[in-house]
Design a protein around this nucleic acid. Structure first.
Length: 409
RNA sequence: CGGAGAGUAGUUCAGAUGGCUAGAACGUACGCUUUGGGAGCGUAAGGUCGCAGGUUCGAGUCCUGUCUCUCCGACCA
């Protein structure tokens, strides 16, 4: 992609109506545009990041046996009446058609996936089953905030699993937890598996995947010596108390929830009369689980974790491009050649071919945050300046070395 | 929903006590110059001052209402 042709470019100033880091940087660098509080457009650059995150999630969900579907965001009232959600969930967006029929916008999809699964599940032989989707979710929040961290409309991966018995569910539950940790690690995030409230329909605890950041809205207590971590909402401990697992003093921190896993029990199966015949031919309700990852929120959390005073520093796995080629004046032709060669070798690259001063281009590169910056300058003959976004050192290397480093680092 | 702040050019902002024919910088267009950390000079385009009422000879400025954004809190099955 050539920067001169890119829709939505870097701006000199951060937006005035933004306080949160991810909001400021994502808008200034041209990754998103705000439509209203909690609702954003993703630009070509922002969409690339979102897709990268989405694809990492998709790969791991597929790897544990999840099958991707795409359910509607617009739901009939009846499904939400069946579970009691219509009257009890205050964040549920409700709307009316001109023929006075009631609809809801999906804030989660148990109400849709459970009746859908009735067609798929008749026998224990049909279990286990795991369906997931990656889609917009809608929640009528009283207050959206913090850029893309808390939207009224947000992008989410939600998976629903169906099991013959509790033991089979537990087995899958652990598989999902492991997959989640792998996913977040690949994106450069350290997620803590945190005990939290299971919501109103279950006494059981759920697990939230928390990333430490002051931009988050949850308070957690965690242990440095073991993996124990608990959300303050259900915590029976305070900072400095002995960890119930290993005895080390607990720490308190602010964190953002990027994922969660729930044991749904048989609540939704019973609500929708979803049953299967077990090995004895008896009718039985399956155990269900649900598993979410906030795709758009994760993008915001990554910016909160990876930035400096000059801009974003994308982890390689989610960066919109692998390399940012800066063509300085007098080296335009050679820069285009480098850019084309990178593309031919399967390296995604952004070429800054704008008629701008060197300083302007460097500032844009820092703001955009692509992990590797390649400066092409008449000063260096045919050599290329290699600089990583998170380091200050600059190396002068030839094109072949650039290709090798991009493919191996 | 309670509290606080803010809406003026594409963007960031300035416009005490009402006198405005509404400014600056950046950005944009054109010309010249320049070329390694957001370059310089010149010219130009760009605004019903969030919206609706009101007070006044006169409102960006005062009053009332309303919409929106941001922050704190509450809320977030």
């Amino acid at each position: 992609m050539k920067l001169s042709q890119l829709a939505f470019k870097v701006a000199k100033d951060a937006p005035a109506n933004a306080d949160t880091i991810n909001h400021k940087l994502l808008v200034q660098a041209g990754y998103v545009r705000q439509l209203m509080a909690g609702v954003y457009t993703y630009t070509p650059l922002g969409l690339k990041v979102l897709r990268n995150i989405e694809n990492i999630v998709r790969k791991e969900m597929d790897a544990i046996g999840g099958q991707e579907i795409l359910m509607p965001a617009l739901h009939p009232k009846a499904n939400w009446l069946t579970t009691g959600g219509w009257d009890n969930i205050d964040v549920l967006f409700k709307l009316k058609s001109r023929t006075d029929r009631d609809y809801a916008l999906g804030q989660s999809h148990e109400e849709i996936v459970t009746p859908l699964a009735k067609e798929l599940i008749n026998s224990y032989k049909d279990l286990p089953l795991a369906l997931y989707q990656i889609q917009w979710k809608y929640r009528d929040e009283l207050r959206s905030k913090s850029g893309i961290l808390r939207g009224r409309e947000f992008f989410m991966k939600d998976m629903y699993s169906f099991h013959e018995n509790q033991a089979d569910f537990e087995k899958f539950y652990e598989k999902v937890k492991a997959a989640y940790l792998k996913i977040f690690k690949e994106m450069g995030l350290t997620a803590k598996v945190t005990e939290a409230s299971g919501g109103s329909f279950t006494e059981k605890i759920s697990y939230e995947f928390m990333v430490l950041t002051d931009a988050g809205e949850d308070d957690i207590f965690y242990c440095d010596s073991c993996d124990y971590c608990v959300n303050q909402e259900i915590a029976k401990v305070k900072e400095g108390d002995a960890c119930p697992i290993c005895g080390a003093p607990l720490k308190a921190a602010r964190a953002a929830e990027v994922g969660n896993v729930f044991d749904l029990g048989q609540k939704f199966a019973k609500d929708f009369e979803l049953t299967f015949a077990n090995k004895n031919g008896e009718k039985q309700y399956p155990i269900m689980g649900c598993y979410g990852i906030g795709i758009s929120r994760t993008m915001g959390v990554i910016v909160e974790k990876y930035h400096d005073d000059r801009g974003i520093i994308w982890p390689k796995a989610v960066s919109p491009f692998a390399a940012h080629v800066v063509a300085l004046n007098g080296a335009e032709e050679y820069a285009i050649k480098i850019y084309e060669t990178l593309k031919e070798n399967g390296v995604s690259a952004l070429l800054d071919d704008r008629a701008q001063s060197a300083g302007n281009k460097f500032a844009a590169a820092d703001l955009l945050g692509i992990p590797v910056r390649l400066v092409i300058s008449p000063r260096n003959e045919k050599l290329i300046e290699w600089k990583k976004r998170d380091q200050e050192e600059i190396e002068l290397i030839d094109l072949n070395t650039v290709l090798t480093k991009l493919k191996t680092s």
